[in-house]
Design a protein around this nucleic acid. Structure first.
Length: 427
RNA sequence: GUGGCUGUAGCUCAGCUGGUUAGAGCACUGGUUUGUGGUACCAGAUGUCGUGGGUUCAAGUCCCAUCAGCCACCCCA
């Protein structure tokens, strides 16, 4: 096997298709999003879990559904040296469910996760082959109240990210297995009669995944679907009651939603509640946080009958909606005037850092250059150390916003910044 | 996986129907005298014109392939 073929063009050093480097500013934003989610999830009792990035391929095939698009055409699958079929995880729920069983965790159990996911799709805006999600899984509670709380958590996180007014939530119920089977039959019966009006793709879907025809974007499909039987009419009594309670709970908590009877989920493990928060500003990949209930999942994987509900949020998609980030600590710039004062300047920089003040120090250039650089990195103040300062045993502190200068003895420089520049930032 | 559009300096782009040493703005570097930034003025550096083939006396400009990005489908977070 050749790891490096001669044909490899090293001249174009790019990341592979559908992946991208996250530069420092982007990492900061990603981190802010995931940390916000984590922090708020903790308020609801969630603890973080980290599962492997690759698993046995069967873990995903069994949970997501063998004929799902994600499994049949979008999974990265490979054989390792021991002959095992492994897969890069395309989503987080399956791995968490597997870990729940492997570790014999006891329900009820609230788990938060974050990390990279992989899907071999054709890249587009909002759709990468390596992307990042954070999500939650709430295992062991069958009550619709769990659905309400889980959705409320998602909403709160989106609010905290400043996205409150820019998203709408769509909600639907897929019902229990019995309801869904009954509906599926009714839908297929109806669609078969109007088969000729369907797009070629939808005719295929009629075989293995008829529910997907409901959210087709083809105009012909849409007009057929407009008169199709609708899922809510086919819910049995208990499923309907379940859905009503979810809706009532959301209303009681003041969470707005739109009941979209055509909302379906692409993964087989969902039942009852399905929801997604969508944005109008993202083009076609518009869902930023979506999930639902998956009561059969743990059992499918070989565990006991444990109900669950959860959602996942797309970090890159959320990032695309967030323009501004809370201001981080502005650094203080320490500037030596004259090379012989450099070490003194550096030791002052060190004491500032040990006092918790972000500090930058220049290594070259004259005073003018160093001040210009300090300004460029956004420093709000500069500490000047030159011969005059050394003679007085004090540093000059220049406020870079108004140009005002003052003298502070060397020993008190860190204290000065602790009191003056570490107040909480506003705006 | 399907269809369409795009690919020129770090960034955003201009380069008309193929014709001499490849352009602008922003950014960057240096300077406008010796210890004071943001503005202004002056000067400077920078490109295998995505990559590989082909047509031509001549290709950034035309053709083919390939890679990558964008848009829609599909799918999904």
């Amino acid at each position: 096997m050749f790891l490096f073929s001669e044909n490899d063009s090293v001249s174009s050093l790019r990341p592979v298709r559908g992946t991208s480097d996250a530069l420092p500013e982007e990492c900061r934003r990603f981190r802010h999003i995931a940390d916000t989610a984590h922090r708020i999830a903790a308020l609801y009792g969630y603890g973080e879990i980290a599962t492997p990035i690759f698993e046995f391929a069967s873990v995903f095939a069994r949970t997501l559904g063998v004929q799902t698009d994600v499994v049949t055409k979008e999974m990265y699958v490979f054989t390792d040296r021991g002959g095992h079929e492994l897969s890069l995880r395309p989503e987080g729920t399956a791995g968490v469910a597997r870990a729940f069983i492997s570790n014999a965790m006891t329900p009820p159990c609230k788990l938060f996760y974050r990390g990279p996911m992989f899907r071999y799709e054709r890249p587009q805006r909002g759709r990468l082959r390596q992307f990042h999600q954070c999500g939650v899984e709430f295992l062991g509670v069958a009550s619709p109240l769990a659905d309400v709380e889980t959705i409320a958590l998602g909403r709160r996180i989106l609010d905290a990210l400043g996205l409150a007014g820019r998203l709408t939530m769509r909600l639907n119920s897929l019902g229990d297995a019995e309801s869904r089977a009954a509906y599926r039959k009714a839908l297929v019966d109806y669609l078969e009669k109007r088969r000729d009006e369907l797009s070629t793709e939808s005719r295929l879907r009629l075989q293995h995944n008829p529910l997907r025809i409901l959210d087709s974007k083809d105009s012909g499909d849409r007009s057929v679907v407009a008169d199709a039987p609708v899922l809510p009419d086919w819910l049995n009594d208990s499923s309907a009651a379940f859905f009503t309670e979810v809706c009532d709970g959301l209303k009681a908590l003041g969470i707005d939603f739109i009941h979209d009877p055509f909302l379906v989920r692409g993964l087989d493990y969902y039942c009852h509640t399905a929801f997604e928060f969508v944005s109008d500003d993202l083009g076609t990949q518009n869902a930023v946080l979506a999930g639902g209930r998956y009561d059969g999942l743990i059992e499918t994987l070989g565990g006991s009958r444990i109900p669950g509900i959860g959602w996942a949020a797309g970090i890159e998609r959320l990032n695309a909606l967030i323009e501004t980030l809370p201001i981080v600590d502005d650094p203080v710039a320490v500037i030596a005037i004259g090379d012989h004062n450099q070490f003194l300047a550096m030791s002052i920089a060190e004491s500032l850092r040990s006092a918790g003040v972000a500090t930058e120090i220049g290594f070259s250039g004259n005073l003018k250059k160093r001040l210009a650089r300090a300004h460029k990195i956004g420093a709000k103040a500069a500490v000047l150390i030159g011969d005059e300062e050394v003679n007085h045993g004090a540093a000059t502190i220049r406020n870079l916003e108004d140009g005002e200068q003052s003298r502070v003895t060397f020993e008190r420089v860190p204290d000065y910044f602790r009191s003056e520049f570490r107040k909480p930032k506003t705006g």
